[in-house]
Design a protein around this nucleic acid. Structure first.
Length: 838
RNA sequence: GCCCAGGUGGUGGAACUGGUAGACACAAGGGACUUAAAAUCCCUUGCACCCUGUGUGCGUGCGGGUUCAAGUCCCGCCCUGGGCACCA
């Protein structure tokens, strides 16, 4: 074949068409692969937004693609699917604005995404593509919901929830960040709305314990642990002085019970009304009203200053019979523990602040701090504590729990910060919740045979904003017959949150077309669990916690074979961009910046010197990189390789177009070598050795997802191969296979240039010969007192003794040892000789 | 405040279980080719100093420590990013 230029556009189009036409990457449940030769490698599927793919998407997708191609060449049967998380607010909001049905927008966006994803040459099995908004898919989302419902894990409640006034829908706890809606940033309000709620708290203990068994980053594991927030303590009952009952509190410090000098109830606590003394009634009611108007943000962040009101009631401390006042304050949350606390101001900073402000007494029961200045929360010796005196903290905690249990005044108790999952949304574009409200029978599930319960057509997508979804206005849809008694019934009009579809999509990929079951047991068991899951860290507690919860429920129902869905999780880092910052820390758009000399940047308009910093890509800074442009100008292979070369997969790193150009130059050099005269002559030994080192490094690094260093090694190899006039078939056939997972289009093309007629996707991965990765001669350094003073090439197999002898006699070393005493000589074969002199 | 990452040249980043810090690339400078430029190829490039050489000193956020030897291990700080935040 005559030499030609590297025409990536032509090559990439050719091979993408080839893979598609030949369904090269279609995968089947072939039983001839033993379990250990199967791998399920999954990308977090995207929400098909109108903005199209951004450079962050290809990073994770390329990483898994390289890995999957490597696995296939190593004889694995690999499940590697892609699909779309296609229910969601943007399409619905667009529908409200334009009247276009969300389904139409969603379809368009999906086809744009598909085209973009395919233009990167990923080896997905497209026959398994799924979209969560299709009735064929959400039929089974609804089915799984019904299984949860039947198991008693879904309940209806009228409780105050987080309401986003901009999205006009309720939100789960996990969707609120710093008191604002995670999606749009609007501060959330508290609102009483009828909700469907999933009892995720029932699985708190399992969700927490099983984290340990997962191969996930410590960061994500810690986030999930913190979110679940388990604490151990005791519930203690305090009798009311009036004899009208008791207040139960939760405390992690039962050992400090002798120091409890007052109690606090959450303003919403049910006892408040009952116990408030007539003379305090006005004050208490005023406080409750004020507290109810505060947003979560105001109740926490903005008001660290303690507020509260005395109820006029007193309780009796069960350990010493002391009469203590009962207050209410909004620093106590009704939703945690029992919504009431015993306050121990000497040993809890919040109680201490409250006591100082309202002049309540502070009694030290544990020595070791200075309670005049702040609460002491450390360990120490108990004092003023009757039978606990002299004990340390852990002993006193157990002793007190034992005492309380014996006297029937309290018991050991465990609490979680995790709250149940608010599961309904008052919007249109989601899975309808398949339940019917019947006056006679109550809440009745839609029979499974009638699923999917499809979304009706509506005139207006506008949410009512009153807590009812647009579905509530479609009488013909809402009014139905009760599946149980046949009488009149009304359909549930809430829809499911966006997270529902992604809670089980990884299961559906194993059997995407099944019309009889959500998945067949055999196919599911063939692949599960997911061996490697790659995606952004932004789903640390949302999707990843919800999916684990559903999976555990499915496990308990005998529907899946593993306790956890995602065995190994890797979070790719964000791709950021350079930005330019003024002295006052404000940022300047890139097109308003001049580089006047190397690394000196000024703002065009003002001439102010700017500092180059790293920032998230944003439209306003004009530093957003569009993958389509990159593929057009440099090709998909360059894009793929550059994203893998930038740095470790897990860390965030800034995009640099000149860095990309460097990788592109590398691929051009690869092509140059491929176009040299191919010879069957024996390559020289050095090239062969370098090749074997390269096989070893690329194999190990690809397996360990350390793609950046694998690529460096390939660059080293090419720099050497360029020096040779001819292309040695023996080494080149191997190198082409090594680079193919990274740059598959050029890989296939070069394979064809070598005269091959089949795709290399299933060629056997090259093996290295250990012997050939070792050099005959190695450089050894001589150190004097730890400082490098000489370097010498020596045979690789030189003995320790020979090394010592050789270096001690080196003239250069003698300069340093002359007239000194040699205290010690340390020789490390293959590394160095260190001579300690005095 | 608590939890989790992480601080290495002008830049992105390498460095196996403690053993030559700075691989590979970008940027920069110099050279070759060219009428010229682009492209390509070659060379130099951590900082400082001098007696310019197998030269000396310094150098992986800061201060200590262990060790023949520390980017790597230990103790105490500082800073950056992410998460949580009145959870009793």
């Amino acid at each position: 074949m005559a030499a030609r230029d590297y025409n990536f556009a032509e090559i990439e189009k050719k091979w993408q068409e080839f893979w598609e036409a030949n369904r090269t990457f279609r995968v089947e449940e072939d039983s001839s692969f033993p379990k250990e030769k199967r791998r399920y490698v999954l990308d977090m599927f995207p929400y098909p937004s109108g903005a199209g793919l951004h450079v962050g998407h290809p990073e994770g997708y390329t990483a898994t693609d390289v890995y999957c191609r490597y696995l296939r060449m190593n004889g694995y049967n690999v499940l590697h699917p892609m699909g779309f998380d296609s229910f969601g607010l943007p399409a619905e909001n667009y529908a409200i604005k334009t009247g276009t049905h969300p389904e139409i927008t969603t379809k368009e966006n999906i086809s744009r995404f598909t085209e973009q994803i395919k233009s990167l040459g990923f080896s997905y099995d497209w026959d398994r593509e799924i979209s969560t908004h299709t009735p064929q898919y959400y039929r089974w989302t609804q089915w799984i919901f019904l299984q949860l419902f039947k198991k008693g894990l879904a309940y209806e409640a009228n409780t105050p929830i987080n309401w986003c006034p901009d999205c006009l829908t309720g939100l789960a706890n996990e969707e609120v960040k710093d008191g604002a809606c995670e999606r749009c940033g609007t501060p959330v309000e508290r609102r009483n709305i009828r909700q469907w709620i999933l009892k995720i708290t029932e699985y708190a203990e399992e969700l927490l314990n099983d984290i340990e068994s997962l191969d996930w980053s410590d960061a994500i594991k810690a986030m999930q642990r913190n979110w679940i927030g388990r604490s151990e303590g005791a519930n203690v009952k305090f009798a009311l002085e009036s004899g009208q009952g008791e207040i139960e509190v939760y405390t992690t410090r039962p050992d400090t019970l002798f120091g409890a000098t007052y109690m606090v109830l959450a303003p919403e606590h049910e006892l408040v009304e009952k116990i408030t003394a007539p003379e305090q009634k006005d004050a208490v009611e005023g406080y409750i009203r004020a507290a109810s108007l505060k947003s979560d943000l105001e109740r926490t962040e903005l008001s660290k200053d303690k507020t509260g009101v005395f109820t006029g009631a007193y309780a009796v401390n069960p350990v010493n019979g002391e009469k203590i006042p009962v207050w209410i304050s909004d620093y106590i949350l009704v939703s945690y523990g029992t919504g009431a606390i015993m306050a121990v101001p000497a040993h809890d900073q919040r109680d201490w602040e409250f006591a100082k402000k309202f002049g309540l007494s502070i009694i030290e029961v544990l020595q070791g701090g200075n309670i005049e200045e702040e609460a002491f929360t450390g360990d120490g010796t108990h004092v003023n504590s009757g039978f606990l005196d002299g004990m340390n903290k852990p002993d006193a905690i157990s002793a007190m729990i034992k005492w309380l249990e014996e006297k029937n005044l309290g018991r050991k108790s465990i609490n979680y910060k995790l709250r149940d999952w608010v599961f309904s949304r008052q919007r249109y574009w989601g899975e309808p919740i398949p339940l019917v409200h019947c006056e006679k029978c109550g809440i009745v599930p839609v029979p499974e045979s009638e699923l999917p319960l499809t979304l009706p057509e509506v005139q207006s997508y506008e949410p009512s904003g009153t807590g009812e979804s647009p579905l509530a206005n479609i009488d013909s849809w809402v009014n139905t017959t009760c599946p149980s008694c046949g009488g009149p019934g009304k359909r549930e009009t809430n829809t499911m949150p966006q997270w529902a579809g992604s809670c089980w999509y990884y299961l559906r990929y194993t059997d995407p077309l099944n019309e009889n079951e959500f998945v067949s047991k055999e196919k599911m068991e063939y692949w599960m669990p997911v061996d490697l899951y790659v995606g952004g860290a932004e789903h640390a507690v949302l999707h990843l916690l919800y999916a684990r919860f559903w999976h555990k429920v499915l496990f308990d129902l005998g529907l899946v074979n593993t306790v956890e869905p995602f065995q190994r999780l890797v979070n790719q880092g964000m791709i950021t961009s350079f930005a330019y910052q003024r002295r006052n820390k404000s940022l300047v758009a890139v097109d308003a910046v001049d580089e006047v000399e190397p690394d000196v940047f000024v703002e065009k308009a003002t001439g102010e010197k700017l500092e180059r910093v790293i920032a998230k890509m944003s439209k306003s800074l004009k530093n957003v990189i569009n993958p389509d442009d990159i593929i057009r100008d440099y090709g998909a292979d360059s894009m793929r390789m550059y994203e893998m070369f930038m740095g470790p997969l897990q860390v965030s790193k800034p995009w640099s177009t000149s860095g990309l150009a460097g990788v592109s130059r590398f691929l051009n050099r690869v092509w140059t070598v491929a176009m040299k005269e191919i010879t069957d002559e024996e390559p020289d030994e050095n090239l062969v050795k370098l090749l074997h080192k390269t096989i070893k490094k690329v194999s190990n690094d690809t397996r360990g997802l350390e793609f950046n260093t694998a690529i460096s090694q390939m660059m080293i190899f090419i720099n050497e191969a360029m020096k040779h006039e001819k292309c040695y078939r023996k080494v080149w056939e191997i190198f082409v296979l090594l680079i193919a997972p990274y740059a598959p289009h050029i890989g296939e093309e070069m394979w064809q240039v070598l005269g091959k007629t089949e795709t290399l996707a299933y060629e056997k991965w090259p093996e290295w010969i250990e012997e050939l990765t070792k050099d005959d001669e190695i450089e050894i350094v001589a150190q004097i007192n730890g400082k490098v003073r000489a370097k010498e090439m020596v045979p690789a197999d030189i003995s320790r003794e020979e090394m010592e002898k050789l270096f001690l006699e080196l003239p250069r070393i003698k300069e340093f040892t002359e007239g000194k005493t040699i205290v010690k000589v340390i020789a490390v074969p293959g590394k160095l000789v260190n001579i300690v002199v005095k």
